[in-house]
Design a protein around this nucleic acid. Structure first.
Lengths: 335, 335
DNA sequence: AAAGGTTGCTCAATCGATGTAGCAACGGTA
DNA sequence: TACCGTTGCTACATCGATTGAGCAACCTTT
C-alpha cells in the first residue's frame, strides 16, 4: 500500500501478527482443516482486504504445478465461426475459474506448434486447439507435457476431437436446396445443383462433398463429377470458378451450394455484376453463417456451425479426463 | 523424457555434468558474461535439445517479476472491430516476444475489474483495455500494480488512451449521406436524416452524435432532437426503434445513420420484412464496417475504424513508457 | 503425576529459474 | 615465495505461495 508495491502473504502475516502459513490457509479457506481460530482468520482477512491483497498466481502456479490458465490456439479471428468459438471458450473457462489465454497462430503448422509449446511453458491447465493444420504433432507435444487437450473443427486422430457434422450438414443443406429448386434434368447442366469451393484433400471439404453426393444421388440429381467445383477456399478462386461456370452454361446454374463464407464473398462479387433477373431464377445455399449474409438480395439458406455446442462438448471431454482419441460430431443448424 | 515429465535445468545440469547456474547461463545466452567455456555450453545445449527442454515460464516470471504475458481485456468478439483489435494485438504482442492473453469481460464494470485484477495477478507485462465501462477504477488498479496500461476505444481520463476520431468520422459519414440524399425539408420528417443507436451517456456515442449534429446543422438539416434515436447498442432495441419510427412516419426516413454494426443487424431484420420499393428510396450509413455489408442490396456507406493503426498507436504509448493521460485520436476511413 | 489427546499455531522444504558472490586452480610478476 | 589477475565454474539466496511435519500449551483421564 505505502510503496505501491503489491503485498504478499508475508506482509499480511506481519501486519496481522500471524505466520505466512496461517495467512495462506485463511485465504484459501483451509483454516478449518488447519485448525486456526475463527478470530485469527478474521483478523487476517481484514488485513488482506485493507491491503487490497491479490495472490501472485505465478508463485501459486509454480508451487502447484498448474496455472489457472486455459489455453486456446486458433488460426484467426476474422472468421465469424472462430470468433464465436473463442467467445464461448472464454465463457466456459471463466465458469471453471480459469483465465482464458487465447493465441492466434495462423494456419502455419510451425507457428501453431510454437504457440502450443509456449502455452505449455506457462503450465496451462488445459488446451483447446481449433483449426489445427497438423494435429498429430500438436497432440504429441501436449501428451508429452501431460496437458489435457482437445481439438475442435479440425480433428486429430490421436486425441479427443469435436467437429461439425459436415456430412450431415451438407446433406441437410443439399436436400433443402433440391426441395426448393425445379427438378434438375440430366439433359440440361443449367438445371443442376453445383457444389462450389473447398478442397477435396481436406477432411472437412471431403465430408461435405460426401453429404452433397449422398443427397443429390438420392434425389437422382447427381449427373456428373463436374458438379463439384472444389476450387479452394479463397474468395477469388470461387469468383473465378463461378465466372467460368457461368460462361460455360451461358447462365447461372439453377442451384449453388457454396462451401464457405469466404467463397460466398467471391460469389457475391460475381453476382453483383449480373442483372437482377439472372439471379432470381437460382437457388443459393452456403455452408457457413454470417448475419450479414441475410442482406443478400436473394433468399439464401445457410448452415450455421454450433460453436457454443462444440465448445461445450469439448469441455466435457476435458472434464472427463479422457485422452483417448474420440470423434464427436455436432450437428449444425439450418438458418 | 523417460517419465514423460518436463525436464528442468536441474535435470539438464546433471546429465551435462554442470551446475544449474551454468545451464541457465547457457540457455539465456549469458555464458560469455559468466565466463563459461564454449565447450561446456555446447554440451549443455546438446543435452537441452535432446531432452526437449522448455523453460518453466512461471518460475522465470516469479523470479524476474514479469511474465512475458501481454494482457488484453475486451468486451466480446462478436463484433468485427473488436475481433480485429484482438487479432492485431496478438500480432504486435508476438512481435515483442510476448504471449497474448486475451480475456472477454463483457460490458459489466465489475467483471472487467476482476479480469484486470486476474491478469495483474499473473504479472502481465502490459495491459490493453478495450471498451472499458468504468475506466477510472481499472486505471487505478493498474497504476497501483505498476502495470503499463493503455485504453483503446473507450478512453480513460487518467491514462494513455487511443480512440477513433468519432466526431470526425461521424461528421464525414453524415456529410456523405446528406450529399447523396434529396435535400431534407423541415416540414416533412420523412425527408430527414436520423441517427439510430448508442447511448448519449457513453463518450463514443456522444461524440458521434456531436459530429452528426455539426454536419446536419451546417447543412441546415437539423430540425428536431427527435432526429437522434439513442436506443442502446442491442440489435433488438434498434429494430424496435426503427419499427416505431416507421410506424410514426408511415414509411422509412430518407436517411439513416446507424451507430454500430449491432444496431445495423436490427435494422436489417426490420428491413427484411419490407418490400423492395420501400427501401430503395432511403439512404443508409453505418458507423462500423463488415465486409458482407458492402454486398447488401442497397448502397451503404460505412465507417471503418482502423483497429490496426489504433493498436499500433497503443503499443507505441506502452513502449514509450508514458503513464500520463493522453488522448490519441485515430481517423477512421469511409468505405 | 505421568500419559495421552486436543487446540492453535509455526517451521521449513518445495516448485524452477535467475544472478550475485565467491571459490579453486593456474599463470604471470616482483 | 608471496602476491595478483584471470579463467571457469559452483553455492546459495531469492521470487511468493503451499503444505507436511511438528511444537507448545492446555485439558483429560487413570
Amino acid at each position: 500500500m505505502k510503496s505501491g508495491q503489491k503485498s504478499t502473504i508475508y506482509d499480511i502475516a506481519q501486519k496481522a501478527g500471524a505466520s505466512p502459513s496461517a495467512v495462506s490457509a485463511a485465504l484459501n479457506d483451509k483454516w478449518k482443516q488447519r485448525r486456526l481460530k475463527q478470530e485469527t482468520v478474521d483478523r487476517i482477512l481484514q488485513v488482506a482486504r485493507d491491503e487490497g491483497y491479490t495472490a501472485n498466481l505465478q508463485a501459486r502456479g509454480l508451487r502447484k504445478a498448474e496455472s489457472g490458465l486455459a489455453g486456446m490456439v486458433l488460426p484467426d479471428h476474422e472468421n465469424r465461426f472462430f470468433a464465436e468459438l473463442s467467445q464461448q471458450f472464454a465463457r466456459e473457462a471463466h465458469a471453471r475459474g480459469l483465465c482464458p489465454a487465447i493465441v492466434h497462430a495462423g494456419r502455419d503448422a510451425d507457428a501453431q506448434l510454437s504457440s502450443v509449446e509456449s502455452l505449455i511453458a506457462y503450465s496451462v491447465d488445459l488446451l483447446m486447439i481449433a483449426g489445427a493444420t497438423e494435429p498429430l504433432g500438436l497432440a504429441h507435444t501436449c501428451r508429452k507435457a501431460r496437458v489435457p487437450h482437445v481439438f475442435v473443427d479440425h480433428p486429430c486422430a490421436e486425441a479427443p476431437s469435436v467437429v461439425t457434422d459436415n456430412t450431415g450438414g451438407a446433406a441437410l443443406l443439399t436436400k433443402t436446396l433440391l426441395d426448393v429448386m425445379e427438378p434438375p434434368s440430366s439433359a440440361d447442366p443449367a438445371t443442376w445443383l453445383y457444389f462450389l469451393g473447398g478442397e477435396q484433400s481436406l477432411p472437412a471439404s471431403a465430408e461435405r462433398i460426401l453429404g452433397f453426393r449422398q443427397q443429390t444421388k438420392a434425389a437422382k440429381a447427381l449427373f456428373d463429377p463436374g458438379q463439384v467445383l472444389a476450387c479452394g477456399y479463397e474468395s477469388d478462386k470461387a469468383e473465378a470458378a463461378l465466372a467460368a461456370l457461368y460462361a460455360r452454361l451461358g447462365q447461372l446454374p439453377a442451384g449453388l451450394f457454396v462451401n464457405s463464407i469466404g467463397c460466398f464473398e467471391g460469389v457475391l462479387r460475381f453476382l453483383s455484376g449480373l442483372p437482377e433477373g439472372d439471379i432470381v431464377r437460382s437457388t443459393f445455399g452456403c455452408f457457413d453463417h454470417d448475419p450479414f449474409a441475410t442482406l443478400s438480395r436473394f433468399p439464401l439458406r445457410m448452415i450455421r456451425q454450433r460453436a457454443d455446442l462444440m465448445v461445450g462438448e469439448a469441455f466435457r471431454q476435458l472434464d472427463a479426463g479422457t485422452s483417448e482419441p474420440r470423434l464427436i460430431r455436432v450437428a449444425p443448424e439450418l438458418v
